[in-house]
Design a protein around this nucleic acid. Sequence first.
DNA 1: CCTACCGATCGGTAGG
DNA 2: CCTACCGATCGGTAGG
Lengths: 196, 196
Amino acid sequence: MQPSTKTRKEQIYEVASELFSQRGYHATSMRDLAARLGMQGGSLYAHISGKEELLVEIVTQATDRFDTALRPLRTAQMSPQDKLREALRVHIQVIATHLDSATVFFHEWQHLGPEYYNKVAERRDVVESFYRDLVREGIEKGVFRATLDVKIAAILILSVANWTYIWYREGGPLKSDDIARVYTDMLLPGLLAQLV
Amino acid sequence: MQPSTKTRKEQIYEVASELFSQRGYHATSMRDLAARLGMQGGSLYAHISGKEELLVEIVTQATDRFDTALRPLRTAQMSPQDKLREALRVHIQVIATHLDSATVFFHEWQHLGPEYYNKVAERRDVVESFYRDLVREGIEKGVFRATLDVKIAAILILSVANWTYIWYREGGPLKSDDIARVYTDMLLPGLLAQLV
DNA sequence: CCTACCGATCGGTAGG
DNA sequence: CCTACCGATCGGTAGG
């Protein structure tokens, strides 16, 4: 065990997430980043291969977190209501606890080169398809309205969850779990076939 | 009347909106922009004062459109349900018909210098306060649930409306008005005190 | 609106 | 991880 459990590389990613989220990827220079880490610009290249590697790594980590959080729910034996509730809880938790990298992900992933762009686009669609499947399952079980447009309903849920990166700030009046609960309570009536 | 109703300046803003929305503000060079307009980089400065003027103008126009669309509804004599429906309709219409500048607004306004940043932040809050007032009015009239958290409810509505800039594309299966209608139908049950 | 140019800064590398 | 440096490109200007 080292005094710090973070490797230098992890420190670089962390500070890069912060700067990229605040100023944007292109507006952040490698010298800015190096200065924040107490080193010279050129020294960064002893640890990383280039600027785009930073963006790729940050964005990939962000999509991985959503995937890791939602995947177990896919096959979970839960009612559609509870699954939605839990999905929103972990989804918003991922954003709240990794706000910088989530922000970089939402703002900058499209600026990745084509080879990474496609991978991330796939990952993104996995999350959206999770909510589509959830809505579809709810309809099939007779719990959600049969008249729902599956795609639009999924996007509506995703809109609400993802938008939290815009306004959520640590130390605010509502904890991440509280936000998810209030959101779920507001969304469910529009999804349910009959209110209980 | 000229053959084109657009001034050269308006053309510059339009192409800048397109490039900024696709590549990002900082990743777009003035030479890129000039080339798309069939001129040399330096020639742009015969029409505009600098790069930031472009961003300021695009972002200001975007906020103006939301303001212009929603302002008449503030004092409109309508039921809260109808007001929400109409608000979402015009809100999403603004995004759909000016997708490039809306995208630039959402992605880049924070990168404006402090003097413009504050102005835009105010404009942004005017839109959010519109939805807060709408929710509050609905509660006071007994139409919306008294248990609603006004701020969170407003943000939820705003999330759904704003997120359309991410996925809406012209020529898709749903027109802007259709999206707004389906969204309203899904959101209202969670807001209403009793379903009608 | 063009040509020619300015200083500044960029991402990245060589050699230690 | 530093010093010193590379070519490329940036936003912007002077003078026409």
